[in-house]
Amino acid sequence: MDIIVVLLLFAGLFFFTGGALGILRFPDFYSRLHPAGKLDTLGLLLSLTGLALYNLHHFSVGALLTSLKIILIVVFVFLASPTATHAIVDAGIRAGLAPWTKGEERR
């Protein structure tokens, strides 16, 4: 049981690492949104699922409710994260930022 929890947690941390590195490495703001908005979402899903499983160790009604609340956070983030990403893209487009294309200087 503990092994599954640790595996899920570390997989989540791995995706979080990818998200943070992607924000630093990618050349412009549109491509930075790809790791930021979505690698983070999957990382949150994996690590919070692991923590919800760990929370069920000593089973009781309260622990079950807490785990369900953690799953509720995951569901909420899955609905909210694409919307937030889309809002940021929209702000960039309306402010007139042109997307980076291959061969240009990074910014």
């Binding site: 924000i23 703001f29 949150l44 919070l48 923590l51 953690i70 937030a84 940021i88 910014r107």
Partner: peptide, 27 residues
């Protein structure tokens, strides 16, 4: 970050990590 939208991306990323950190602190 060179533009304002870059800063917004950063705020979003930090916030999603904070959610996990809060639950870890609780545990």
């Amino acid at each position: 970050g060179p533009t304002v939208v870059d800063r917004m991306i950063s705020v979003n990323a930090i916030g999603s990590k904070t959610t996990v950190v809060l639950i870890l602190i609780g545990l």
